[in-house]
Nucleic acid binder design. Structure first.
Lengths: 87, 87, 87, 87
DNA sequence: ACACAAAGTTCGCGTC
DNA sequence: GACGCGAACTTTGTGT
């Protein structure tokens, strides 16, 4: 490495720029983790109030899906279950 | 490293033994990957025959679960869905 | 269901309360998804600037780990790799 | 459903065929699970012999990758780490 | 029971 | 545009 190298140009990489990018991502990930914690807290609260967490998770998942798609999928599933005697 | 070192005792690790373990795992993983491929093939065949792959996956998942547990979970889910007007 | 039932007490579930919980989680998940999108954008920007995204991801992962733990883990790994001639 | 329906033609689905497919997959999944158990056993044995399981997992992962690709990736990573002073 | 880890599922990406 | 691959998230199991 030449004597011109410094913190801002290590081996052809603009160190400062790279660092900026990384720190931006890290900040966003921190905020994201904080939200994840918040969700965890709400779930704990839910549970403490006597709700079934797994069922609530299922509800959340269902609400994310398109109702038509979901109904369609359920219909096929039921068809197969009937065919297999899993009613 | 001392002059006593050889392929079977590198830095205090019994290289031969370690290699044996690793190769055993790799063989098992190979077989496992082969089975995974077989499953993939069956799924492709299913699909080619006109079946809905996602629904079949759901069926497989359901069949793995205890029927009582499943029924219980469904009952709770339905209760919540009714409460939320998602019927 | 008895005539006393209303939107707030469906089958013994306090519908309003349940709904509150669910909507709280959904709001948090929305914010979380927005942050995920932001991260995605930064990654795209990184990439456009010529950086290797996978390497940046690795950097981010490394920075999350305790430096001491990491060094220890690396030392063991190197030991094993030497033993196996993977140097 | 018409009076012609039987176990082999439920609602337009060839129940027997569907069942065959599902049972084939289930058999394969069983074998796969058995192998997974075997791997788990080997890992436990490894551990009992004093090896670091996590490091062994890393070795296995590294050996799956193309050596050239890996070296390339490591070079980039090192470059970035130097630029960030993480050496 | 809690946290850590492993498995499965899902989503985004690159490829053809 | 679909398909297969790889990474991320979620969920399930385990060990403390």
């Amino acid at each position: 490495m030449s004597s011109m190298e410094n913190a801002e140009s290590q081996g052809g990489v603009a160190a400062g720029e790279l660092r900026q990018f990384i720190e931006r991502v890290e900040r966003l990930e921190e905020e994201k983790a904080a939200l994840q914690d918040d969700i965890k807290d709400v779930m704990a609260e839910l549970k403490a109030r006597g709700y079934d967490v797994k069922a609530v998770r299922t509800i959340l998942a269902l609400r994310k899906k398109d109702p038509d798609e979901r109904q369609e999928a359920e219909a096929i599933l039921e068809l197969y279950m009937n065919a297999l005697g899993m009613a």
